[in-house]
């Protein structure tokens, strides 16, 4: 279960979207234009179970997301989903890691306050005694040139997905 975003948590003017999250259903999100710079030298780390439910976050994850650790652990990882991210990117992510392979890509994440931050994300399946027991996601500071490329690419992909709908 993932609750809608609360206007009281959002700083400044915002736009409202309703995301259709896989396995969860609709979620109302509130989005501003503010980008929070990725902090130098940090890694944002989280782990989920095989269903994508967060089981562990590090302190950099908590700081950048704007949520408390208690709000994050037990929540679906899609709590960070930004409406500017194409569904196809996450479908590719899940297909890849469920095959037992590593996925890497650039992701625009949504904070609790409606702002966003860009990451270079790498997701690895946690294989223990031959079985996938969860996933670890590690994000690091992206090269700005790659972010600019993704802004344009994802805008085209999202537009195409909305047309198909």
């Amino acid at each position: 279960m993932l609750s809608d975003m609360n206007p009281a948590d959002v700083t400044g003017d915002y736009r409202e979207y309703t995301l259709d999250l896989f396995g969860i259903g609709p979620r109302r999100v509130l989005v501003t234009d503010e980008e929070v710079p990725y902090p130098d030298g940090r890694l944002i780390v989280s782990r989920t179970d095989t269903e994508g439910i967060i089981t562990h976050v590090n302190r950099s994850f908590v700081a950048m997301s704007g949520y408390t650790e208690d709000e994050l652990v037990g929540a679906p990882h899609s709590i960070l989903r930004h409406p500017d991210m194409p569904r196809a990117a996450f479908a590719d992510l899940w297909r890849t890691v469920q095959r037992g392979e590593i996925w890497q890509g650039y992701v625009k994440n949504l904070r609790k306050d409606g702002a966003h931050y860009w990451v270079k994300a790498t997701v690895i399946p946690n294989v223990r005694r031959g079985r996938i027991v969860g996933y670890t996601s590690v994000r690091r500071k992206p090269e700005r040139r790659k972010v600019e490329e993704c802004i344009a690419l994802y805008a085209r992909m999202v537009a195409e997905e909305r047309e198909v709908k």
């Binding site: 690895i124 946690n126 223990r128």
Partner: peptide, 13 residues
């Protein structure tokens, strides 16, 4: 240790 190894694998990927 397994967690650290997974993390190192993501960094060297």
């Amino acid at each position: 240790v397994e967690f650290m190894i997974d993390l190192m694998d993501t960094l060297s990927y």
